[in-house]
Design a protein around this nucleic acid. Sequence first.
DNA 1: ATATCCTTGGAACGTTCGGTCCACGAGGGG
DNA 2: CCCCTCGTGGACCGAACGTTCCAAGGATAT
Lengths: 192, 192
Amino acid sequence: MTVTGFEANRARVIGIAAELFARNGYHGTGIAELGTAAGLGRGALYHYIGSKEAVLYSISKEQVDSMNAYAEQLLDEDLGAEELLRRMARGLLRNIAEHRAEWAVFFREYTALTGEWRDHVITARERYEGYWRQALDNGVRAKVLRQTPRLLVKGILGMLNYTYLWYEPDGELTPDEVADMFLDALIEGIRA
Amino acid sequence: MTVTGFEANRARVIGIAAELFARNGYHGTGIAELGTAAGLGRGALYHYIGSKEAVLYSISKEQVDSMNAYAEQLLDEDLGAEELLRRMARGLLRNIAEHRAEWAVFFREYTALTGEWRDHVITARERYEGYWRQALDNGVRAKVLRQTPRLLVKGILGMLNYTYLWYEPDGELTPDEVADMFLDALIEGIRA
DNA sequence: ATATCCTTGGAACGTTCGGTCCACGAGGGG
DNA sequence: CCCCTCGTGGACCGAACGTTCCAAGGATAT
């Protein structure tokens, strides 16, 4: 049962590209290699992808955009500070666990993007960081958390993002459990 | 006053390569580009570097090896559990701050290594993680820290390693201060 | 002056790069 | 049966890739 339709085919190619880019790097993966893996000749391949950089952009953009949408939704829900942080962490780790290849490509290779594509992705990434800062500030305002340096948010994101490198979907912990473990350690340390 | 001697020249070229690899990626940086940046022709360049992959190996190896040596030294010193963790964190962040380009290359591009070089770097990296686990276990045995999942060490290292992406040497915080900020948040959360 | 060695620039190698182009086949509506 | 569109494989493009090679320059020791 082959999938049909332009969009479905495009998505399929981009998924394959994510695996290849994750394994061999963006510059380290050739268009010929991608064509072979997708079972497509040059003509068909370019019909779907437009350009190699467009593929990298699609891979990167989709993940960050989806996390931004999720964060915006949570921030609208008027949750308690601790619950908000836990849900944001769980959402991120669930996404990373489901799209390890895409996140690996995004973290390692987004610098290979140029022009507006680069700007868009970097901006989206900063926006996401802003949502985390907002969530932490919520906690401080509600006197649930103590005042901490603004750079702590970088540390938290590092802790969570880094999972793309080691998380094993078949391991003993679910993404939610990993998120909770990290937040258990952190929240006690920054409670008011 | 130009530096002389084979080793000094080699080190100079590798330093320049680290900057280029960090900015444009390993596969994204050409030998021609490196030659131009170093002010060397092809012949002279290869006289010093041997091969492109050898450059990547040198950059990666040096940082990890130096952190392993530092960790081994600290573990020999019989420090208190908290002091040990703080010193390890400070040492790592100091090193990252001083060699941002090298760490960026290491984190993003070590997968481009092949064969024994790849194995050596991966092994060294796992060894370093083992030292951190040891330090945490010390704390648990001394009843300074509570028992935590073994995967927490991945989170701590993520927190610290991630600094290569954002730490600004001219910013308001020294590497030691960043390390302390992170550990202040963490240690309270995992104390016994 | 001669011999030896380290260092050097640049030509050249075959391969692969990302991307373009075009002819053609299949499918559907008139 | 013709025409148009869409999808496709593969020839082909110039440029860049990492590496090798060699002749010669420069320094030092004899």
